[in-house]
Amino acid sequence: MYDLKQLPNQKPDEHVVMFLRRQWFAWAAIIVAFAFMIAVPTGFAIFFWDRVGVWLQHPIFGPVITMFASMYVLCLWLFSFLEFTDYYLDTWVITNDRIINIEQKGLFNRVASELHLAAVQDVTSEVYGMVGTFFDFGDVYVQTAAEHERFEFKSIDHPEKVKEIINKMVEEYKETHAKNIVAAMADGTKTI
């Protein structure tokens, strides 16, 4: 499992500042969709029970209908679990040294990117719509000078706060880095 105390290539003084996932609407939507897809056929079956009951008593159609219904529910169940896995494995980790973006795109398709705070040029937060405004969730974009130009934090909680934390981490990183360079030059271990 992914251990936040032992990140890949972790530096001795590196620690996790924030660990983020998509906003809870993502898994709530999975539950609502699952409930709806179960409720509609169940409602039809209950409404037309006088006919459905006759079919279920048939020695051939009864077991076939039962098996198809079971397969339908199990498929929905598995699909919901797959969607939850996709939601759960999409994570963003902000440390005092870098930002790690891990995106799960279906099974057997995973993209992991790292961005060092020194390469951050601009951070933007975006909250849109009435729901996003009331529940305070939205996107955060981190503009970089690297090959991967823009990091995107999709549908996260408190995007404004996350933006401020990233900006603060970037400032602290640059300040610390500058001090280290000055100290190294004073020691003679580093020259221009």
């Binding site: 499992m1 992914y2 251990d3 936040l4 660990f19 098996m67 079971s70 397969m71 199990l74 498929c75 598995l78 679990f81 797959l82 896995t85 759960y88 494995l89 994570t91 891990i102 799960q104 099974l107 057997f108 995973r110």
Partner: peptide, 26 residues
Amino acid sequence: AYGLFLAVFSLYSLFNLYHLVRFGTA
């Protein structure tokens, strides 16, 4: 036929669990 479906279902469930165990945070 139903047994075959259950076998495929079990396979995908195991794939899913594998991803969670390997890449998930406890």
